[in-house]
Amino acid sequence: MSSRARNLTFKLVLLGDGRVGKTSLVLRYVNNVFSEKQETTVQASYLTKRLVIGGVPITLSIWDTAGQERFHALGPIYYRDADGMYLINTTALLVYDITDSDTFLRVRKWVKELQQMASKDIVMVIAANKSDLIRSKKYDIQEAESYATTIGAKLFLTSAKFGTGINDVFLDIAARLLQKKKSSFQGLSPALPRKGIIVVDDEPEREPPPKCCS
C-alpha cells in the first residue's frame, strides 16, 4: 500500500447490459446532465468526480463500459497477459433496468464472475435504474434487494432521468472504499493480492488537490 496522501483516488467500473443506463448514470452524476438521445456506447470512457467524505478529499475515477460482452476484452475490466485474461480487481457498480428482468440476470452473472475472479472483499453496489418508470416495473425490487444483501452489496433505486438516488450510490461506494482503505492501513485486513489476479492499487493523484469538492 502506498503512503498516506492528501487525496485518495478510487477506481470503479460500471457494468451491466446494454441500454440499462450506465452512461446516463455517470453523466448525471459527473456533469448533472441527462439526454434522451444518448448514443450506444461503443468504447469504454473515463470520467472523474471529486468529493469529500469526513474531511477526506476523494477522487472517484469512473470507467463507463459498453454493454456487450465482447467489448470487454478491449478493457478496462480485464487484463491480458501471456497466460490469458484476468478480471481486474476493481470496485463494480452493477446497473440494471428495473423494467427489464433480463438485465438483472446479467447483474447476477457479473456478481458470480467477480466473486470467482476478484478478491473476496471486492466492493460491489447495484443500481436499479429507471425508477422513473416504476409503474411499468416487471421485476420485484424486494427480491433484488435481498439478493444484494446476500452478496454484501447495497442496492439503490436510481433514475438518471430525474437525477434521484444517483448521489447516494456513489457516496456509498466512496464511503465503503474509504472505510476499507482505513482498515487496511490499520493492518486489520491487509488486502493480499491473490495469485494470478491483478490488483489495481489506488494510487494517490499527482495533480494538485482540487479547489472544490463537487
Partner: peptide, 18 residues
C-alpha cells in the same frame, strides 16, 4: 494511455460514431 481508450471506436465504426 493505450489506443483502446480512444481509438477503438475509430476502427469499430470507421469514424461514423461521434
Amino acid at each position: 494511455v493505450n489506443p483502446s481508450m480512444y481509438a477503438s471506436q475509430w476502427f469499430i465504426t470507421v469514424f461514423s460514431y461521434s
